[in-house]
Each structure stands twice: as C-alpha cells, then as structure tokens.
C-alpha cells in the first residue's frame, strides 16, 4: 500500500453530486479551491447543471478526467456500493462523510480498500483539508487557517470549535483529517502518524479523541514505536459518559474497563503527549507552547 498523503492538486470526483446536499457541497468545495473535476448522479438521478461535468458512474468520470480521489455524498446504506465503485474505477483516496453506515458494510469496505491498496477516510467524517488549498467534506471555512498544526479528530463539531478558537489566537493547521466517530472505520489515528511525521509543514499534532475504542491507546503505541518527536496535544471528550451508553457516536462507549478516559490518558501521557479535559485548557496549552 502507498503511504497516505494529501496532494492539494488532486482531482476529485463527487459521488452523488446531484442531490440537494451533493450539489451544494460540490460547489462549496470547488469554491474553496478543491480540484472538483467530475460528479456522478446521486439516488435522485437528476442531472441539473451544477457547474461540473456529470457522468453515469465513477469509471467514466475517472477515464474522462484522471481523478484520483472521491467523496461519497450518498445515503448511509449506499456507502459500501459507492466505495466499491470508486475502488473499481481506480480511485486511490475516498472520503465518506455519511453518518449511520452499518458496521458490517464498513468491515467489507475496509477489506476491499486494503485489497486495492487505497485509502478510505470515514464514515461519519467531516472530511479532510489542507487549509487555504483544498477541502473534501464539510469542515467550515471559519475554522480553517493555514498553519503548522496537524489535526486528527474523531468528532466534527469538537474540531470546528477547537480549531476556530485556535485560529482566533493565530494558530492554524497544516492538514486536517477527520477520522470519524464510528468504531469500524477506514483510517485510524495511528495510521496518520507517518504522514504527520513526514510532513514538513506540520510542527505539532492536535488529537481530538473520545472515550471508547482503543484508537488513542493504539496511537500512543505507534508514537512510541516510531519515536515520534513532534509535540502532541490531546483533548478527550466523554469523561462523564455513563458506562454502556452510546452517546451518538458509535465508538463513544465504554465496556468494562477498556477504552476508558484513564487508560487513554495514561497511555498518551506515558509517551509525552499533553492531555487536556477542557477546550479552553487545551487552547491555552497550545498557545503557550509556541508551536
């Protein structure tokens, strides 16, 4: 598999570009500077003019435009089909914002993505961005500012809030990847570490984690293994989540001792990360660190 990387000039197909949401976001991404070169029709099959060439399927779009990335703006039950179509068309990076994708579908999608040696971000992701250059997804412009912080986040809204406050204090982002809040997902925190390690624009990493799962613990292990030396700032949400209760995000749940706040905090502090439990404390900590 090729290492994950982000090319601001990559050509993008919007899968499901004709619906109310699809056409709107296709335009917003294009306006931000993303090379949106093609769209495929969504479930509605409507073909109104949205200012980008429309194709029947991904294969035709790739053949005509040379696109290498796609974003799947389709209903949750249709994500697996869209990911499969994109992989078969030769797409190398797929972003899936849909919330509510069945877990079994996500596992099947991951297996297919591995088979093709491609990369899949999502589901339930607000998207990815290189501030000032491109974005794939919904990340609000008001939170995006070119800078030196590499952002990885399970939560969309929490990352908007944190990055907005940091941006007001003059601290922007080198790259931003929302991995999404689902338990079974395409891209996990630890898999982004080599990218942020190698990326010269990234001087520090901001991790917005949540209770549940073991992604944060896995990230800590990967930091130790790869001797990751850039500063890492972490905010963890869900300290007060009742045991066994899912709070919206599929992954945000505690089962009998693993994935707790304590295990995550300890694992990350052990490898030198700074871990915070309130937004303002994190923002002040990052500002004070002079990254």
């Amino acid at each position: 598999m090729n290492a994950f990387h982000l090319d601001p000039a990559m050509k993008v197909v919007v899968q499901g570009a004709t619906g109310r949401m699809g056409s709107r976001h296709a335009r917003l991404m294009k306006d931000y500077g993303t090379q949106v070169v093609a769209g495929t029709a969504g479930v509605s099959g409507r073909r109104e003019d949205i200012g980008i060439p429309l194709f029947d399927d991904c294969a035709q779009a790739v053949q005509a435009t040379g696109a290498t990335a796609s974003i799947t703006l389709v209903p949750p039950m249709d994500v697996l089909g869209a990911v499969t179509q994109a992989l078969d068309a030769g797409i190398r990076l797929i972003v899936s914002p849909s919330e509510g994708m069945p877990v079994r579908d996500a596992l099947v999608a991951v297996a297919k993505v591995r088979e093709h040696g491609a990369h899949w971000v999502g589901p339930s992701t607000p998207g990815i961005a290189i501030p000032g250059r491109m974005k794939l997804g919904f990340i609000p412009d008001v939170s995006l500012l070119p800078g030196s912080l590499g952002v990885m986040s399970k939560s969309g809204t929490l990352s908007y809030e944190v990055c907005h406050r940091l941006a007001r204090r003059g601290i922007g982002q080198s790259a931003w990847v929302g991995v999404g809040g689902d338990a079974a997902k395409g891209m996990r925190f630890a898999e982004l570490l080599p990218f942020f390690h190698d990326d010269a624009d990234t001087r520090a990493v901001l991790v917005l984690g949540e209770i549940g799962g073991d992604e944060e613990e896995e990230l800590a292990q990967a930091m130790a293994r790869s001797c990751f030396t850039k500063p890492v700032f972490v905010l963890l949400a869900g300290a007060s989540a009742p045991e066994g209760v899912t709070m919206g995000h599929a992954g945000a749940m505690v089962h009998g001792g693993t994935g707790s706040m304590a295990t995550k905090t300890r694992a990350l502090r052990d490898v030198g990360a700074e871990v915070f439990t309130s937004i303002q404390a994190l923002v002040d900590g990052v500002v004070a660190s002079d990254v």
């Binding site: 939560s155 969309g156 809204t157 809040g181 949540e210 949400a237 869900g238 989540a241 945000a252 439990t277």
Partner: peptide, 16 residues
C-alpha cells in the same frame, strides 16, 4: 446541541 463530540465535551465541562 448538535455534534456528538462537542455535546459530550459540554457535558464534561458542565460536570466539572
């Protein structure tokens, strides 16, 4: 509220 992560964070901060 909207957004799972931010809503959880608000709950944490309120309890704090």
């Amino acid at each position: 509220t909207t957004g799972a992560g931010l809503s959880m964070m608000l709950i944490d901060e309120m309890l704090q």
